[in-house]
């Protein structure tokens, strides 16, 4: 009885925790100018620019939103920042050339080490390396299922999605995909993942129970080099950063058919979605800007100048 009560209380507390309102800020890594732009989520203006490490690329928040993590690729480190005070809390070594990472619901960070053909797992509380998993060449995208049981690491030069089991940290499947797989995203129930392939210009839908590709869409625009991928809040729509097509491509998540193409800046690379789903933000690398998209109208409502070669983006909301 008491146990059930505690369990019930814990369940009630969970949504409150996961919806804790953050600073509302949008953080953007600028690979070319070694800086992080801090955008005010209300005014959509840059309020501060942080200089915290060399070649910043991957960026993410802790599950409780209290810590911001930035992969400083050339420093081979993760820099931990307080998203409120914007002070650097600590820095820890994160293997060779940390590029992209994802934060597990348990707080651990799963990193792709591009130069080393491996993924590494760190506890950001103390900087300890928990695991090292050999994967294919040029590991890039990292995605974690919401229940934390599966991690996908894409290897760009081995053309695979490596499916890693947690907590065992062994590979349970290697799914061959189109050339240069970049990014992946899970649905909330973890049964489906979507992945992009940059060189083959494809978006794939993968059944994560069978580890099988169930749908493929080749983006017709030859200039499209699909990079980041994001689901809408209702999971009915998929947003893909189109790279050199200078657009965010909007697909039907069920059929993968293209519903809209939203022109943004040049060489669109990273994507982030507001918690309520009303906005999508893209980093437009060659335009040195971030585009704010209204998802109701599929239109850019504001272009925000940031640093050079904006790469990663995360929203603390």
């Amino acid at each position: 009885m008491t146990r059930n009560l505690i369990y019930g209380l814990a369940l009630m507390a969970l949504p409150a925790l996961s919806q804790a309102t953050g600073t509302g800020r949008i953080f953007v890594t600028n690979e070319g100018s070694d800086s992080v732009s801090v955008i005010n989520g209300k005014t959509l203006e840059v309020e501060q620019t942080l200089t915290i490490g060399k070649r910043p690329r991957g960026i993410g928040l802790s599950p409780d939103g209290r810590e911001l993590y930035v992969a400083a690729s050339e420093d081979n480190a993760i820099v931990v920042v307080d998203p409120g005070s914007l002070k650097v809390l600590r820095t820890f070594p994160a293997g060779s050339d940390p590029e992209t990472f994802a934060v597990h619901p348990n707080g651990h960070i799963y990193i792709s080490n591009e130069d080393d053909a491996k993924a590494t797992v760190f506890d950001p509380a103390n900087g300890n390396q928990i695991a090292e998993i050999p994967v294919g060449l040029e590991p890039e995208g990292v995605a974690i299922s919401p229940d934390g049981s599966r991690v996908i690491v894409t290897s760009e030069s081995t053309n695979m999605l490596h499916v890693i089991r947690v907590p065992e940290h062994d590979i349970v499947a290697n799914i061959l995909v189109g050339a240069r797989p970049r990014a992946a995203v899970f649905t909330r129930d973890g049964t489906i993942a979507y992945a992009t392939s940059e060189i083959s210009g494809e978006v794939k839908k993968v059944d994560m129970r069978a580890n099988k590709i169930i749908a493929v869409e080749k983006i017709a625009d030859e200039k499209a080099k699909p990079k980041d991928v994001m689901l809408s809040a209702d999971e009915k729509t998929l947003y893909v950063a189109g790279g050199r097509s200078d657009a965010v491509i909007v697909l039907d998540a069920a059929t993968l058919k293209i519903k809209a193409t939203i022109p943004v800046g040049k060489r669109v690379w990273g994507l982030a979605r507001s918690r309520d789903g009303s906005r999508i933000f893209s980093t437009d690398g060659a335009s040195n800007s971030v585009s704010a998209i209204d998802t109701g109208r599929n239109e850019v409502i504001k272009t925000i100048p940031v640093g050079e070669l904006p790469w990663g983006i995360v929203i603390d909301d």
């Binding site: 053909a117 050999p134 294919g136 060449l137 030069s157 081995t158 695979m160 490596h162 590979i171 290697n174």
Partner: peptide, 10 residues
């Protein structure tokens, strides 16, 4: 060497 790295998985 790269083919064999992939080959490990297959």
């Amino acid at each position: 060497s790269e083919a064999n790295l992939q080959g490990q998985f297959l």
